[in-house]
């Protein structure tokens, strides 16, 4: 499991009612995005209302999980213990097919092989269950 060495173990994310569907989806292996039923905008990160028209008529849907690297950096120094042992690792904004960008890691590849425009697809890591919640953290791998 080479990719495990490139990343720290992910802790269970802090969630609230605005973000629960996203992290529960990740626990099922689904990248869940929001679409406004009034204005049609797809948004990320999730909110309790549409940040474009303030409608609260929001629906959730499962993203294709495909996108490309918009930008990235190879992190070679991080003084937080959990990440210090994971360097070098890749932090990136991935441009999703559905429009939004999300901040994530690119794993399962040589950090020096990552480039802008590279095709990537989502991958998930389950996080420790807390209070019965089966959550996960999405990250990306070369497509």
């Amino acid at each position: 499991m080479a990719e495990k060495k490139q990343n720290p173990e992910y802790e269970a994310p802090a969630i609230d009612w605005e973000s629960r569907a996203y992290w529960e989806g990740a626990g099922r292996g689904e990248l869940v995005l929001q679409r406004c039923r009034d204005c049609g905008v797809v948004q990320h990160r999730p909110r309790g209302l549409c940040a474009s028209c303030l409608s609260d008529d929001i629906e959730h849907f499962v993203s294709s999980g495909r996108g490309e690297v918009y930008t990235f950096s190879v992190v070679r120094q991080n003084q937080m213990p959990a990440f210090a042992k994971a360097v070098p690792y890749v932090i990136s904004y991935v441009q999703l097919e559905e429009g939004p960008q999300l901040l994530t890691n690119i794993v399962d590849c040589d950090p020096d092989s990552v480039s802008i425009g590279m095709a990537v697809k989502v991958d998930f890591v389950p996080t420790p269950a807390t209070n019965g919640d089966a959550l996960g953290v999405p990250r990306f791998v070369p497509a």
């Binding site: 720290p8 802090a14 609230d16 991080n78 901040l103």
Partner: peptide, 10 residues
């Protein structure tokens, strides 16, 4: 919860 979209990724 809002930081959760950044924190896991280092």
């Amino acid at each position: 919860p809002s930081a959760a979209f950044v924190t896991p990724y280092g």
